[in-house]
Nucleic acid binder design. Structure first.
Ligand SMILES: Nc1nc2c(ncn2[C@H]2C[C@H](O)[C@@H](COP(=O)(O)OP(=O)(O)OP(=O)(O)O)O2)c(=O)[nH]1
Ligand SMILES: [Mg+2]
Ligand SMILES: [Mg+2]
Length: 580
DNA sequence: GCCGTTTTCGGCCCGACTGTTTTCAGTCG
């Protein structure tokens, strides 16, 4: 079955190949926009086609793209893409991944040097052959030599938030020491809360842009200065991550922050809207003629366009602008709304005390804490952890503790543990730990079965994601979420930066199906409660409000839910545990 | 190729930096 990502890749490739033919650039963009829509759509194109849904109802999809999507779903490929590949002026698109190489230069390199891969280009640079090629010269050859010598990342390279956050923290500390910079913000996809980022985009307020750029250039972690001008600079950090800087004055701070936060489609939509109002929006402000009518704050910018402030997490041009015009944006959940964390790991009695203290110190008023269990786990281990939990919890006034066990799932969707280990738990979390390669139908059946289990309170890692290693597997999330909503089982969003599932998109799907989401740090060490904020940001990207999140509710309320599941449901339905 | 708070045709966001350019194309944010 062809996935949305695969269809998006095909449309993207058509766009790239059309760009070589000097096609109408707006036509190229139409394919890119279509690719983006398909990639970030909550339902699969395959399911839409199966339901005979009207694909042209999707934004940026018209009759042509709809036909291509349909063809891809039905046949697995697009004939017009195959044709474009055959007639393509270059044999490979790999060169386009090199910084500074676009369609024109890639074509010239192939036609005049027979170079079509980054490795061949590197060789040609070392042999000083590139300077003779049309559009190149001695200067650009030196630049390319630098690109290869300093191992500049490929353009499509992205980094998990977990690897970027420590760098961002160090950067904030460093920028804080700069006398020339009075205010700064990390913008771009980082500020929008994406779980992977392509680079770090910095807005810095300064009277002296050159001094600010100098200061950043002399940061110990800067490996290479890619470019610098009067208004901006680009650097490569030691880790290979790119960092873009835009300097601004106080009057234009809000406009620059809006521009650099994006997203690009969001900004383009704002600019179109400005135009329709007889205004112009750029990174310096909102303009009426040559008069600046807004610029100092983002709120001012949005207001000038007839919009209420839009939280960065929503700025993806997915309907937020239309809602902002009506002042009908959803109220999003915040970190302060969270009253507890329902998935705290303690695999031995030693861990319990410190974890409870840390949770309490983070302002949480309850936790569910306990071990991850499997076939080897002894009953005594679980009992000891529960006893320790009860004892330690009494010492912390204002903290309530639920006894938790996390169990794996069988491929059929039963709990993969013996009943005796589960007996004393207040709540049971079922975690998808394996079976990642099941077909979509099998996986959907498995998870629907799991959420219906009378003793299961939360389904953890519902898409098996491992950031940078394993993409979320294909599953009919709408169906799983609907079953979860009916059964009163929550789906989990783990803020472990290595996991980050549910994704923002799946959160939205789950919300629409009426399911509750449990946002957890999935902490196994005391310091890890801090990452709850990452989970909240992702939940906000999924448009979740306080009422969508399970652990916004109070402990007493939840205790009832858990107990109900334990008594009533087990009384009515057989327990499926231990049938692996 | 897509689309409509003037539009079903004629637009489509706007600007910075670099190198080779002899007036601006290419690439990128
Ligand atoms: N108006 C406008 N703004 C752009 C354009 N390209 C980029 N930007 C703005 C919006 C982006 O969010 C911001 C930073 O650019 P990036 O390429 O770093 O993108 P972003 O951070 O959104 O995603 P990333 O994770 O870095 O790939 O600059 C453009 O073509 N037009
Ligand atoms: Mg970025
Ligand atoms: Mg950037």
């Amino acid at each position: 079955m062809v996935t949305n990502a695969e269809i998006a890749d095909m449309l993207e490739e058509i766009a790239t190949l059309l760009a070589f033919d000097d096609a109408n650039p707006f036509r190229v963009r139409a394919y890119r926009n279509g690719a983006r829509t398909v990639r970030r759509y909550g339902k699969t194109m395959a399911s839409l086609v199966a339901d005979e849904a009207d694909l042209t109802a999707l934004p940026t999809i018209g009759t042509d793209l709809a036909a291509l999507i349909q063809e891809a779903v039905n046949t697995g490929h697009m004939r017009s893409l195959d044709a474009l590949r055959i007639s393509a002026p270059i044999p490979s698109l790999d060169l386009l991944e090199v910084e500074g190489i676009g369609p024109k230069k890639a074509r010239a390199l192939w036609q005049e040097l027979g170079v079509s891969t980054p490795e061949q280009l590197h060789r040609a640079v070392l042999d000083h052959k590139v300077r003779t090629v049309t559009g190149f010269g001695p200067g650009s050859e030196v630049r390319l030599a630098e690109v290869f010598a300093k191992q500049t990342p490929l353009k499509s390279r992205r980094y998990p938030l977990g690897t970027v956050t420590p760098i961002a923290d160090a950067l904030r500390t460093y920028l804080g020491t700069c006398p020339d910079i009075s205010r700064f913000e990390i913008a771009g996809s980082f500020r929008r809360g994406r779980d992977t980022v392509g680079d770090l985009d910095i807005v810095a307020e300064t009277h002296t842009p050159a001094a600010a750029i100098d200061h950043l250039a002399s940061w110990s972690r800067v490996k290479r200065l890619v470019l610098r001008g009067e208004a901006k600079a680009t650097f490569i950090l030691d880790e290979g991550i790119q960092m873009d800087l835009r300097a601004t004055d106080t009057e234009g701070w809000g406009a620059m922050l809006q521009y650099f936060t994006g997203s690009k489609p969001h900004s383009i939509a704002l600019r179109v809207r400005a135009k329709a109002k007889g205004l112009k929006l750029n990174e310096y402000g909102v303009w009426k003629g040559n008069q600046r009518v807004a610029g100092a704050t983002e709120t001012e910018i949005y207001d000038a366009l007839g919009l209420v402030f839009i939280p960065p997490e929503l700025r993806e041009n997915r309907g937020e602008i239309e809602l902002a015009a009506e002042d009908k944006l959803p109220i999003l959940v915040t970190r302060q709304d969270l009253k507890g964390d329902l998935h705290v790991i303690a695999n031995s009695v030693r861990d319990v005390g410190a974890m409870l203290k840390a949770a309490h110190a983070c302002g949480l008023s309850y936790v569910a804490i306990g071990p991850r269990i499997d076939a080897k786990t002894k009953r005594k281990t679980v009992e000891d952890i529960f006893r320790e939990t009860d004892a330690r919890c009494k010492d912390i006034p204002g903290l309530r503790c639920f006894r938790l066990v996390e169990v794996g799932l069988t491929k059929q969707g039963d709990l993969d543990a013996s009943d005796t280990l589960l007996e004393d738990a207040d709540l049971i979390i079922g975690a998808v730990r394996d079976g990642f390669d099941l077909t979509k139908a099998e996986q959907t059946k498995r998870l629907v079965q799991a959420v219906k289990h009378p003793r299961l309170s939360i389904l953890s890692h519902p898409t098996g994601r491992s950031v940078g290693e394993r993409e979320p597997f294909d599953v009919d999330m709408a169906k799983v979420a609907k079953a979860a909503a009916q059964a009163g089982t929550a789906l989990e969003l783990s803020a472990d930066p290595a996991r980050m599932d549910l994704t923002d998109l799946h959160c939205h799907t789950a919300q629409e199906a009426g399911a509750q989401i449990s946002v957890t740090a999935e902490a196994i060490r005391p310091a890890e409660f801090e990452r709850l904020t990452l989970g909240i940001v992702q939940a906000r990207r999924g448009w979740l409000g306080p009422s969508d999140v399970l652990n916004v509710r109070g402990a007493a309320d939840l205790a009832k839910t858990f107990r109900t599941q334990k008594t009533n449901k087990t009384a009515k339905e057989p327990v499926h545990a231990g049938s692996a």
